[in-house]
């Protein structure tokens, strides 16, 4: 089924400003692009959720001080699922974040509930086969949605 031609299997390639507004617009672009595949609505939702977290992390932690804070996203069909790659020119990703995350505790008093720390837990809950590379000052993060 899956074609060997990487160009043919490419669903989306985009470059956009590494800002919260840029991420918001890009999530909408990805949603519109994946909406053509009605059989995959569940996976499309997972892509939006994970990509939202990954891109917002880039905006908040990798590129906030970059002179030109761009982000690139590529989504390809894979067998099985979808393969997603993000690239940015920001600070390196701390390796510990790749090895998993625990969910913040939701027990106890309302006043003690966490208001953050969910992002990497959500990413690891849904994404598979995560690979991170840094080459010539560019971060590359790749992962699959099955």
């Amino acid at each position: 089924m899956g074609s060997a031609n990487p160009v043919e299997d490419r669903l989306l390639t985009a470059r956009f400003p590494g800002t919260a507004e840029g991420v918001r617009e890009q999530i909408q672009v990805v949603r519109d692009r994946l909406a053509h595949d009605p059989d995959d609505s569940d996976r499309a939702e997972d892509v939006l959720i994970v990509l939202g977290e990954v891109l917002n992390n880039i905006v908040e932690h990798a590129v906030p001080d970059a002179a030109d804070p761009w982000i690139e996203v590529e989504i390809r069909r894979d067998t099985p699922g979808l393969r997603v790659e993000t690239r940015d020119p920001g600070r390196p990703l701390p390796p510990a974040l790749l090895s998993g995350a625990s969910t913040p505790s939701v027990e106890g008093e309302v006043a003690d509930l966490p208001e953050g720390g969910f992002g990497w837990f959500i990413i690891h809950s849904l994404a598979h086969d995560m690979i991170y590379e840094r080459q010539e000052g560019t971060n590359r993060l790749m992962f699959s949605l099955l």
């Binding site: 949603r31 939202g52 309302v110 006043a111 509930l113 208001e115 953050g116 959500i122």
Partner: peptide, 23 residues
Amino acid sequence: DFLDSSGLGALVAVMKMLDGGRR
């Protein structure tokens, strides 16, 4: 139709605005 972890954190923050142990 879209909520991310920042939005989730905002919902938690809103609940903390409600006193008297309201959910």
